[in-house]
């Protein structure tokens, strides 16, 4: 499904967040020059098509007490990365799961997962249990905990837009 200019304007306006008013889609409709019914129908189609992954309340982990944030990186053979990626991507512990290129010799890892928890001990245990459960104990991996957050905000792709 290709995005029309109208869809592009709609998702761009939406990603700044819906207003907390009784008819938020009406406000969105006014912002992009559409009818309220059309906005709702379009959002339904974009969700069904998978362009909108999820529409709802977007929470901040750290502010809810999930202070340990680990990027777990895995060196998975290329022939297996799709299968392993799909399995890790559906694990309840994992909040993001992306394949990215290796940059040898600096960086041998090709699969990135994010795991959040209340503290490092909990997160380390979750990762070890997940590796065991998924049969990945013998694959090389590293866990990179964040130690400082210098900046976190929604992305601005030229117009108002945010991504997690």
């Amino acid at each position: 499904m290709d995005l029309s200019d109208r869809d592009y304007a709609l998702v761009t306006a939406l990603c700044g967040g819906l207003p907390l008013t009784p008819r938020p889609f009406l406000a969105l409709a006014h912002a992009v020059g559409m009818e309220e019914d059309d906005v709702i129908a379009r959002l339904h189609s974009l969700s069904t098509a998978g362009i909108i992954r999820r529409l709802g309340v977007i929470v901040r982990h750290r502010e809810l007490g999930y202070r340990a944030n680990a990027m777990v990186v895995w060196d998975i053979p290329d022939h297996a990365v799709e299968d392993v990626g799909q399995r890790l991507g559906s694990c309840p512990e994992v909040t993001l799961c992306y394949r990215r290129p290796r940059r040898l010799p600096d960086w041998p890892y090709n699969l990135f997962t994010m795991v959040h928890g209340r503290d490092r001990t909990e997160v380390t245990g979750m990762i070890a249990a997940m590796a065991e459960r998924e049969g990945l104990r013998n694959h090389r991996r590293e866990t990179l905990f964040s130690t400082r957050r210098f900046k976190q905000c929604g992305a601005h792709y030229g117009q108002r837009q945010a991504a997690e």
């Binding site: 998702v11 990603c15 992954r53 999820r54 529409l55 309340v57 992306y98 929604g154 991504a163």
Partner: peptide, 15 residues
């Protein structure tokens, strides 16, 4: 606690 009521888009949908 809440960032926004909004959408998470498929990566690279825009930009």
């Amino acid at each position: 606690a809440v960032s926004r009521v909004g959408a998470v888009l498929r990566p690279h949908t825009v930009g």
